[in-house]
Design a protein around this nucleic acid. Structure first.
Lengths: 155, 155
DNA sequence: TTGAATGGTTCAAAAATTGAAGTATATTCA
DNA sequence: TGAATATACTTCAATTTTTGAACCATTCAA
């Protein structure tokens, strides 16, 4: 039964296999986020996890591949709930730096711990495989942050 | 500048590094989907790609970790646009099998080809790394399809 | 053959995302 | 210098997507 799945998957190109794995993992992780005891939205969780150090909103928008207006909404919510504060970037007073409060730090630590646990149980990989997967994932992430939209595919 | 990113990422656990890579890749791929010349929604693209062989709607719902009602809506749209047909599953007449039409097959082939290209350019991995990544991704996907929600995290 | 379970549908409410127009600060260069 | 342009973020209304509860039809179990 599950061999069926394996054999069918085997016939797909490695790229599509990789993509399907990524989608399955993403969807699973998102689903699991619902189970975390917290009243944060998914987008709010993502932002908290990304705020390991203060960051500009524009940087977050680029990183999360979303529009500035979405970042504004999410930051508003997190500011409202006391998880972060806005502070003008002294380097460029047009920009805001988002800075976690103590409460925000606590929430972030909890999320990072739970997310790590989620990855372990969702992926089922051992620590060696996890390390290898992480290595490639980092490489991919750096490539994505470095490059824009692939040529020939712009709107 | 980008060393900054690398060093910061290096301090995070492999699990979180893996997750961040997965999120970056997922977001990038979704963004790139917008650039594909087609009037299919993302969910419709996902469904087409998953329909390498006829599948029940329930199977798709489980696979895409979404609600039956979402699958119904997506299938309606794809049926409307002539990409697939519904056919009662002879094994269980409550269930529908979703079967691609010729037009659906064509669209799927195009999507699979473009998606492969997207993965290559977004990830920046060479073919050896891609194969390794795909291997782990398949393993993860199988684990996810096999297991339910991780214990202790149910609502 | 009746009651419970399963596979899918409907539809209205809720949530998330978009995009265009606006404010404030920076930068450019005539 | 200062006028024009670009950048960083905000606002808000419209669109899109997702959710979830009530529902119908078929199957399974006793």
């Amino acid at each position: 039964m599950s061999d069926d799945i394996s054999t069918r998957l085997g016939r797909l190109s490695p790229e599509i296999q990789a993509m399907m794995g990524v989608y399955a993992l993403y969807w699973k992780l998102e689903e699991s986020f619902d189970c975390i005891e917290t009243d944060l939205s998914h987008q709010e969780c993502h932002m908290l996890i990304k705020l390991d150090v203060p960051k500009r909103m524009g940087v977050l928008a680029a990183d999360m591949l979303t529009l500035p207006s979405t970042i504004t909404a999410t930051a508003d919510a997190l500011e409202q709930s006391g998880h972060l504060t806005r502070q003008r970037d002294p380097e460029d007073r047009r920009a805001w730096l988002l800075i976690l409060t103590e409460q925000g730090e606590e929430a972030r630590n909890m999320l990072v711990a739970v997310a790590g646990e989620l990855f372990r149980s969702a992926s089922g990989l051992n620590s060696e495989e996890t390390a290898e997967f992480a290595r490639l994932a980092c490489k991919i992430r750096e490539n994505i942050l470095k490059t824009g939209i692939p040529e020939g595919l712009k709107k």
